[in-house]
Design a protein around this nucleic acid. Structure first.
Lengths: 137, 137
DNA sequence: ATTCTAAATGATATTCATTATTATTTAAGA
DNA sequence: TCTTAAATAATAATGAATATCATTTAGAAT
């Protein structure tokens, strides 16, 4: 079995496939996208199982839940990273910057009343595709 | 009438009160909290009107919509700021740092394919209250 | 001030993402 | 292999958010 963590839980095919799918698809899939993807390998999986496991695995710290424009998405990328979010289409890309991470965490040291353990920056703007769409009508 | 922007729209009592409420309550209220608050002044306001206006005013750029732990919240704070988010209770506090804003936007200049116009940092950790609750049982 | 009308509201119905329920199945330890 | 708590599949239930539509109103025109 592929090691997907040491948490106290059963390593069912459903969980293994859900995590594998998210590791192969970095584009912050929605529940339905995970469901459709995993169903190619486990044709009989229930959508309720996908919902329960995405929530369960997020609580266990094996996944991360994000929300853009009211849509819930999931990712399994645990290298500290930031997000580029398009105001128009809602697309969310990852963006790596150790420099920004380090700087931000240093700022966080001075914050009182909150024990900060991680951070992530959201950059907002318009993606290349949407800009082109606007120009071309 | 208090100036709440120059957008092309009717300045109804409902909209004025919703914006006023959010300016007086910086704690990122939920739809229900806005509804309960505004109802003290406009007892006959419909919750559908609150929903419609929160969405409408967000699209007009007069409010901002945020999501924590699957709960939608709104704010009217347009001074650039960051968020302190408690992993346990979901509380979201604002945190100001012009320094961090400037640094991040400078990093953003080098990003290609996205025209960045704003940013906000989310810091994750445990708030004072939750830490005390953990210690005291 | 009065009239006019597109826009907004209130009340309610509807939608649909998410959660709960429950009988059945299964992972993993004895 | 046996045992059992945990997980799954199928489906029902919930509830946040949206749509519908008759009524009202902000703001412009007369």
């Amino acid at each position: 079995m592929d090691n997907i963590g040491e948490a106290d839980m059963k390593y069912t095919n459903q969980r293994v496939e859900i995590i594998a799918f998210l590791r192969e698809h970095k584009g912050h899939p929605t529940v339905d996208e995970v469901y459709d993807g995993v169903r190619k390998k486990l044709t009989r999986i229930s959508k309720a199982t996908v919902y329960k496991n995405l929530k369960f695995l997020s609580q266990k710290g094996l996944l991360e839940e994000v929300n853009v424009k009211g849509v819930t998405r999931f990712e399994a990328n645990f290298v500290p990273h930031h997000h580029l979010i398009c105001r128009k289409c809602g697309k969310m890309d990852d963006f790596q910057s150790e420099e920004l991470f380090d700087y931000s965490m240093k700022i966080a040291e001075d914050i009182e009343g909150f024990s900060i353990d991680s951070m992530s920056t959201n950059f907002y703007g318009i993606c290349k595709q949407c800009k082109e769409d606007t120009i071309n009508g």
